[in-house]
Amino acid sequence: MNDDLNKSRRNFIKKASLAAGITLAAGAIGIEKFLSAKSVPKKKTLVLTPDGKVYQANCGELKEFNPPPVSNLEARKGIPNKKFVMVIDEAKCDGCKACTEACQSMHFIESDREWIKVFKMQDSESTSPYFFPKPCFHCDNPPCTKVCPVNATFKRQDGIVLIDNERCIGCRSCMVACPYSTRFFNWSHPKADQIAETGNMQYSPELSLPRRMGTVEKCDFCPDMIRKGLLPACVSGCAMDAIYFGDQNEDAVTNASGVTVKFSQLLEDNAGYRHLEDLGTEPRVYYLPPKNRKYPKPDMNASGKELNQTEMKMGDMRMSE
């Protein structure tokens, strides 16, 4: 189900059916209805469904669909009747940082910052350490959007918190307001290779690219991917299947292997929790405690060697909660 597409297929799809895509929910139902009705299509075309599958469909049945990036107004509203939610299973995370890598290359993130960062956590001296991948929590009571003076960062109806870097004035109020250090500031111009790769992209808050000096950026839950029915980069990039993503309204979350489970059941069975619940920010990211771990626990004394210019601050290792 999660096969990628080869080059020729991509070109073909691009030419033949990009314009003949379908709107996310209504379109999908339309297709299903058409298929179940078993009418014999006369003029067929290939279509891409929201979950990334290809159908042959009758041209007459299809609705026009604007390919991303969506307009600024649409990006601010979000997808109706969806509440996106992420579940991260600490028992499955082995700290390999594949999620971070997938995210970095997807969003062309510069090496000094990580939109999803894998922390080594230890709540107290006697408790067991564990790996803690941390994206943006897309809180339902977001401290960041509260303090934005120009509505450059905003909460959408599907729960996602985004940044409009064409409006951001760079006051960094949101950065100091975020208790999870999720936001990053573009202190300088993007690097030349980055400009070469992303400079010509058409900006949308859903794309977060091209990035601009003097504005804030953060994990965006890959809304452009979601619109295509695809999982965010970190979720599909997780080799351990530790990250689940889905729609809370559907009560289902899916991981990289395509295993879809009932969201409420998953939390119930594994005693799911949210990080720093007492702050009252109501995160949309849930965690499953590291019980019955299959992988070795993190070595809290090892310093990070992955980045050359890095340093771990051991004094801050102990965490609240």
Binding site: N2, K7, R10, G52, S105, H107
Partner: peptide
């Protein structure tokens, strides 16, 4: 069955990496 990824990740990873 196959799924299709037309996205930035794909474009970059496939387009650039393949090249």
């Amino acid at each position: 069955m196959k799924s299709i990824i037309i996205n930035r990740y794909f474009l970059k990873k496939l387009g650039f990496t393949i090249a």
